[in-house]
Amino acid sequence: MQQEVILAMLAKEASHGYELRARLRDALGPLGEAMNAGQVYVTLTRLEKAGLLAVERSADDADRSDRKVYTLTPNGQQRVTEWIAEVSWPKPDLAEFHLKLIAAASAGLADPLTIVDTQRRELLRRLRDAQRAAMAEPSRSNAALLLEGIVLRLQADLRWLEACEKNWTHRRRIS
């Protein structure tokens, strides 16, 4: 999970670690369940060291990290503002699969069409899981929106697999 995400989630107000985790869970729905609590605290500690976060210790239980109250430093504020303005986007790694097909075909390692079929099955299963999860969410919830994103991306991937299949069927016919 990116550091800036954690920073930005704290931009609203100074919060305890557990409050932060609750906020993330709310935004991610079932996907948040799988989130590793330890990783959030590792990130928080890193941010603290980088001087982007300041810690207001709570009175009673000073040592427990989820009892700490985190707040943004001016540097942290600055970082969040920059991050919001960024236009980075996760890059799908299609080249790997593409090269896999080419290598398998040229070296005679496997039938590219079989690879496509296997991959499709896998994607369809993922799609089904995402779909089921989406259907279980109340519509218009934060989680439903995120799940819709997954579904749409998987659909795009499946469409690309269809194109791969057509292309490789065509190549086989020619040769």
Binding site: L31, P90, E122, R125, A130, L146, L154
Partner: peptide, 12 residues
């Protein structure tokens, strides 16, 4: 399925 949903959104 083989994978987890979280991986699909960059959470894992």
């Amino acid at each position: 399925t083989t994978g987890k949903l979280g991986a699909l959104v960059g959470l894992e």
